[in-house]
Structures are given as structure tokens and as C-alpha cells.
Deep mutational scan, measured.
Amino acid sequence: KELVSALYDYQEKSPREVTMKKGDILTLLNSTNKDWWKVEVNGRQGFVPAAYVKKL
């Protein structure tokens, strides 16, 4: 599985998104959309802005 690192804090703005803190390591589930990537963090799945994470 592919991992990404959070470059910035992000506070979810809808139920489809997830909150992350800078430095968090997230499991990348889907990166086909260039703007929003689906990740899993702390057992929750949702979307984060692609520009806020980088692949490890």
C-alpha cells in the first residue's frame, strides 16, 4: 500500500473529508482525482486536498 505524509494541518469541512495534522502518515487509497485524494487516517476514510500531502 502507498503512504503519504501530511504537509499541513487540514480540518475537514464535510463528512466526506478527514482531518489530518502536519506530519501525519496516511494510507493513500485513491489518487485518480488531481485535486482530492482519498486516504485513511486513524481508521477513517475520506478525502484531503492533494496539494496538502506528498507521496513517501
Rank of each mutant, 00 (worst) to 15 (best):
V18Q: 03
F47W: 15
E17M: 06
G46C: 03
T19F: 04
Q45L: 08
A6Q: 01
K54E: 15
R16M: 13
L56M: 11
S14I: 05
K1P: 14
L56E: 09
K1L: 14
D24T: 06
E17C: 07
A51L: 10
D35P: 02
Y10M: 01
S14V: 05
Y10A: 00
G43D: 07
A50N: 03
L3H: 09
P49F: 03
V41S: 11
N42D: 12
G46E: 01
R16S: 13
Y8L: 11
W36C: 08
G46T: 02
D9S: 08
E12S: 15
A51Y: 11
Y8R: 14
A51V: 10
K13R: 13
K38S: 08
K34R: 13
G46D: 00
W37T: 04
M20H: 01
P15S: 13
K1E: 11
R44Y: 06
K1F: 14
L28N: 00
L3W: 14
E12Q: 13
W36K: 02
N42S: 09
E40I: 07
K55D: 07
Y52G: 10
S14D: 12
E40K: 05
R44P: 00
L56I: 14
D24Y: 04
V53C: 14
V41I: 15
N42M: 08
W36P: 00
S5Y: 15
L26R: 00
K1S: 11
D24N: 06
F47G: 01
D35Q: 11
T19R: 06
D24G: 04
K13Q: 14
S5C: 15
K1M: 14
E17T: 09
G46V: 04
T27N: 08
S14L: 08
Y10N: 01
G23K: 03
S31R: 09
A50K: 07
Q11L: 13
T19Q: 04
K34I: 10
T32D: 15
K34T: 11
V4M: 07
L3T: 09
V53D: 02
V53Q: 00
Q11K: 13
G43K: 05
R16Q: 13
Q45G: 06
R44A: 06
Y52C: 15
T27Q: 11
E17D: 05
K13M: 12
V39F: 00
G23D: 07
S5Q: 15
R16A: 12
A51C: 15
L26D: 00
L56S: 08
G43C: 06
K38M: 15
Q11Y: 14
V41C: 10
S5D: 04
A50E: 04
L7D: 03
L26T: 01
G43M: 05
K55M: 13
Q11D: 14
V53N: 00
N33L: 09
A51R: 14
T27I: 15
V18R: 02
V4E: 01
Q11R: 09
P49L: 03
K21G: 05
T32M: 11
E40V: 06
N33T: 06
P15K: 11
G23L: 03
L29Y: 04
K38N: 07
V39M: 01
L28V: 09
Q11S: 12
E12Y: 05
D35S: 11
I25V: 12
F47C: 14
V4F: 12
D9T: 05
V39L: 03
L56G: 07
A51I: 11
D24R: 02
K54I: 14
S31A: 13
M20Q: 01
K38Q: 14
N30P: 03
D24L: 04
A6I: 02
G46A: 04
E40L: 07
K54P: 03
T32L: 10
P49M: 03
M20R: 00
L7Y: 05
V41D: 04
Y52V: 09
Q11E: 14
A50M: 05
L29I: 14
K1R: 14
L7A: 06
E40Y: 06
E2W: 13
S5L: 15
Q11N: 14
Q45W: 08
R44F: 07
P15I: 10
V48M: 01
V41G: 08
T27D: 05
Y8T: 09
M20E: 00
A50V: 06
S14Y: 07
V41E: 03
R44G: 03
S31W: 09
K38W: 15
E40D: 08
K54H: 11
M20Y: 02
D9V: 02
N42T: 05
E40H: 05
R16D: 12
Y8P: 01
L29H: 05
T27R: 12
V53S: 00
D9N: 08
G23C: 06
E12W: 06
N33K: 07
L56R: 05
E12N: 08
V18E: 00
S14Q: 08
F47T: 03
E2D: 11
K22M: 10
T19P: 07
S31L: 05
V48S: 00
S14C: 12
Q45N: 07
L29S: 02
R44D: 03
E12A: 15
K55V: 14
K21Y: 10
S31C: 14
T32W: 10
L3R: 10
Y8A: 11
G43I: 02
K34V: 11
E17W: 03
S5I: 15
A6L: 02
D35T: 13
P15A: 13
Q11I: 15
N30D: 15
Y8I: 10
K54Q: 14
G23A: 04
V48K: 00
E12V: 06
W36L: 04
A51H: 13
K21H: 11
G46H: 02
K55Y: 12
G43L: 04
L29W: 05
E2T: 14
L56Y: 10
N33D: 14
Q45V: 15
L56A: 08
G43S: 06
L7K: 09
N42I: 04
V53T: 04
K55C: 14
T19V: 03
T27P: 13
W36T: 02
L26Q: 00
E2C: 15
V18D: 00
S14G: 13
T19H: 05
Y10H: 04
V4R: 05
Q11P: 06
N30Q: 11
L26H: 03
R44V: 10
L26G: 10
K13P: 05
Y8V: 12
L7E: 07
V39T: 01
I25C: 06
E12L: 07
E12H: 09
K34E: 12
S14R: 08
W37I: 05
S31T: 12
K21S: 09
S5W: 15
L3N: 06
Y52P: 02
A6R: 00
V4Q: 02
K38R: 12
Y8C: 15
R44L: 08
V41A: 11
G23M: 03
I25D: 02
A51P: 08
P49D: 03
L29C: 07
K55A: 11
D9C: 07
W36D: 02
V4N: 02
T27G: 06
Q45E: 13
L29Q: 03
D9A: 07
D9M: 03
Y8M: 12
W37S: 03
Q45A: 12
V48T: 01
L28W: 00
P15R: 10
G23R: 03
Y10K: 01
Y8F: 13
S5M: 15
N30E: 15
T19N: 06
K34N: 12
D9F: 04
D9Q: 03
T27A: 10
Y52L: 15
L28M: 04
N30V: 09
L7R: 08
E2K: 10
Y52T: 10
M20D: 00
T32P: 04
Q45S: 12
K1N: 12
E12G: 15
D35R: 12
Q11T: 14
F47A: 03
E2A: 11
S31D: 15
R16C: 15
N30M: 08
N42F: 07
M20G: 00
G23P: 00
G43P: 01
S5T: 15
V48H: 00
E40A: 08
K38F: 15
Q45T: 14
K21C: 12
Y10C: 01
I25M: 08
T27Y: 13
L29A: 02
G23W: 04
